[in-house]
């Protein structure tokens, strides 16, 4: 039984230009890249469809300008999509009334912005509490929650400062804390860790994963960093010029990239951490050693065993049945060379 869809979008288009609607209509709702170029429209999001299930982390990647932020804004309906539908818990939010939207944002959605979007006239604490403030929650209660969150993101002691006094990373953390204030079901994150230094970034990622495990939020996460994507993602979506090129588990992307663009993205990925034994095993032959590894283990984890053994290593599945074997040369070829699927 599959989990219910939390967010789904179907045939989503966002076109920028003089008269986007009629441009779409003229090209029967499917303008080609050539059409965009010729008539000077920008296809920031082109015909994107996907689902995110409850509790899943979907990472969106793509080069700068490929439409990641625009897609996120369409999902949160900060901008109106040119055409297509976005469903949130089965409700089409492209048709939601302003009141319904406010209600949704007050209780169900949180968002971290690429450029922070902090309110310059409010202190760190007031910024974090702002979503609670607009709901009319009493000051003592919201500030209590705000202090908790400030603690969580490591800003304790800075509560009374104004954003302009903070470093980029600190501002980013205020944004993260603010987006958590209302305990949203769905969390939109636009490059949330990009302004952080590597150490804090690592910490925040861990913290993020811990939160996710504890609170089981549904998350759409934009990043430029494939390593980060692999760390946090259940599935990764790769965008190019507004269109979705490939959507799948990290392993799928690395193992069989849909096109050279995706391959380029995954080229420097730590394969050993991503690819699992199942991908490289071959049918069993008699020569296998007595050592066995599980089918879903990552290559990095089994490498010492496989490399240390002079024969192929047995692969077993969840029920301890032998399903194949892994050869040493194959493992080395996959982990340390460029060619993924010879």
């Amino acid at each position: 039984m599959s989990k219910p869809n939390k967010i789904s979008c179907r045939n989503l288009w966002k076109v920028y230009g003089k008269d986007a609607q009629s441009f779409m209509a003229v090209h029967s709702n499917a303008p080609s890249l050539e059409d965009f170029r010729r008539e000077q429209y920008v296809g920031a999001v082109r015909n994107v469809s996907f689902e995110v299930t409850t509790g899943e982390i979907l990472v969106v990647m793509g080069l700068s300008g490929s439409g990641k932020s625009t897609l996120l804004r369409c999902l949160a309906r900060l901008i109106d999509a040119t055409s297509g539908a976005v469903c949130f818990d089965g409700q089409d939010i492209t048709k939601a009334t302003p009141e319904e939207l406010i209600e949704l944002r007050r209780h169900k959605m949180g968002m971290v912005f690429q450029n922070f979007g902090l309110l310059p006239h409010k202190t760190v604490l007031q910024n974090i509490c702002f979503p609670l403030d607009v709901q009319g929650i009493s000051r003592t209660r919201r500030e209590e929650r705000g202090m908790e969150l400030a603690q969580l993101v490591g800003l304790a002691g800075k509560e009374n400062f104004y954003p302009r006094e903070l470093s980029g990373g600190q501002q980013q953390r205020v944004g993260i804390a603010r987006s958590l204030a209302v305990e949203p079901d769905v969390w939109f994150l636009d490059e949330p860790f990009s302004a952080l230094d590597p150490l804090i970034r690592r910490d925040m990622q861990d913290e993020f994963l811990r939160l996710q495990r504890a609170l089981n939020k549904t998350i759409v996460f934009v990043t430029h960093d494939f390593e980060e994507a692999v760390r946090v993602a259940d599935r990764i979506a790769i965008m190019k010029d507004g269109a979705l090129v490939q959507l799948g588990r990290p392993e799928e992307l690395v193992w069989c990239p849909a096109d050279p663009y995706v391959a380029e993205f995954t080229r420097n990925a730590p394969r050993g951490k991503i690819i699992s034994v199942g991908q490289i095993m071959v049918p069993t032959s008699a020569a296998a050693s007595e050592i066995s590894i599980r089918i879903d283990q990552k290559l990095d984890d089994v490498a010492p065993l496989v490399l240390g053994s002079d024969r192929s290593v047995k692969v077993i599945d969840h029920d301890d049945r032998v399903v194949g074997q892994v050869e040493r040369d194959r493992l080395i070829a996959v982990m340390f060379s460029d060619g993924a699927r010879q």
């Binding site: 949160a76 900060l78 944002r105 949180g110 690429q114 979007g117 979503p131 944004g175 603010r178 209302v182």
Partner: peptide, 18 residues
């Protein structure tokens, strides 16, 4: 006013008046 600031206000659940 930077668009992000307005958007962050919207995502905080502001009514138009707020």
């Amino acid at each position: 006013v930077a668009p992000e600031i307005i958007e962050s206000g919207l995502m905080s659940g502001c009514t138009p008046r707020q």
